[in-house]
């Protein structure tokens, strides 16, 4: 579980330039406030699909509106 969060925050750090520690405090915030617009969000999902070998459909993606929701989704998909 900790690993999932580490992986997720690692990718988000790469996409937004925010350090993982700062992101820990933004887990429940809307993704736009984390610095992920719709384009960066798709980049994040593509990287997660590759990392975990899962397919994230648009109907799943629409509910992934915070880092916490994404972490829960990855955990559920494993």
């Amino acid at each position: 579980m900790a690993n999932h969060r580490e992986t997720l925050l690692g990718i988000v750090t790469e996409l937004t330039g925010r350090d993982p520690q700062a992101l820990e405090g933004l887990m429940q915030e809307p993704l736009a406030d984390v610095g992920l617009d719709s384009i960066r969000q798709q980049e994040l999902l593509a990287q997660l699909e590759d990392e975990y070998d899962v397919e994230i459909s648009p109907e799943d993606a629409v509910h992934l509106d915070s880092l916490a929701a994404i972490e829960r989704f990855i955990r559920g998909a494993q």
Binding site: P30, A32, L36, D37, Q41, V62, D65
Partner: peptide, 12 residues
């Protein structure tokens, strides 16, 4: 536009 994750279902 269909819903997009960034703004969530509520905004749509």
């Amino acid at each position: 536009a269909p819903p997009r994750g960034i703004s969530g279902p509520g905004a749509w």
